[in-house]
């Protein structure tokens, strides 16, 4: 279960962002909608434990994220939060398989080759196992990024604008793929986007709305 309460983040006195409280159960698919500059990126950073909020807390299952120290938080994130970035980035010197293996290794898990192979096959890129990531098409790269986010069976899958660059048909496909995979892993799927095409396809939708001085949060269903 993911639970946030009274999250806020201050870049400066003038720019003080506050965020809606979120509650997601395991297996639920949630959407966070926000316009550019609304603080949606900050929200994603907070949820991933990449930034520390000014106030408030985030709890994932039994762990309060910001009570963990630096290295422990890194380890916790690696093991329990799978993040799919807008731009798929990889360790360039490694092939597809090794990119997944290093995700296991860095999270402190044992490298499990069969798991990697099964996962890639499920995403229909099993044959790309030994290729360098920069040799893949954009679609294939996105799938590898999804596979990497799933490889440690995380509690929470965070996706940053996974559909913004895609046409309707492909956007639909990617969302379905993400839902499917999250379902299979019984993980919370949290998509952070400004893409309003997605708004009716999720269990819960949160909106981030900002005003120039401070953000007023609104809560839509």
């Amino acid at each position: 279960m993911l639970k946030t309460s009274e999250l806020s983040y201050a870049y400066s006195k003038e720019k003080h962002l506050t965020f809606p409280d979120i509650i997601c159960q395991q297996g639920e698919h949630c959407l966070i909608l926000g316009q550019s500059g609304s603080g949606k990126t900050t929200m994603l950073n907070l949820l991933a434990g990449l930034r520390t909020p000014s106030t408030g807390s985030i709890q994932l299952k039994d762990t309060s994220l910001f009570q963990l120290s630096g290295a422990a938080l890194d380890r916790f994130r690696g093991r329990n939060i799978g993040i799919i970035f807008q731009q798929p980035h990889f360790v360039k010197s490694l092939d597809v398989e090794a990119n997944l293996a290093i995700a296991q290794k860095l999270a402190g898990e044992r490298v499990n080759k069969t798991k990697i192979v099964t996962l890639l096959e499920k995403l229909q890129i099993g044959h790309k196992l030994k290729q360098k990531t920069y040799q893949l098409s954009v679609g294939e790269q996105q799938r590898v990024a999804i596979a990497r986010a799933l490889v440690n069976q995380p509690l929470l899958i965070l996706a940053d604008e996974p559909t913004s660059a895609l046409d309707d048909q492909n956007a639909e496909k990617v969302v379905n793929l993400l839902k499917e995979q999250a379902q299979a892993a019984n993980a919370i799927l949290m998509i952070v986007t400004h893409d309003t095409r997605l708004k009716n396809q999720f269990d819960k939708t949160y909106r981030i709305v900002t005003s120039p001085i401070y953000s007023i949060l609104k809560y839509c269903l």
């Binding site: 994130r77 690696g78 993040i83 860095l106 999270a107």
Partner: peptide, 8 residues
């Protein structure tokens, strides 16, 4: 990315 994946 490596930090995100759990590297300290």
């Amino acid at each position: 990315l490596m930090r995100v994946m759990g590297a300290s």
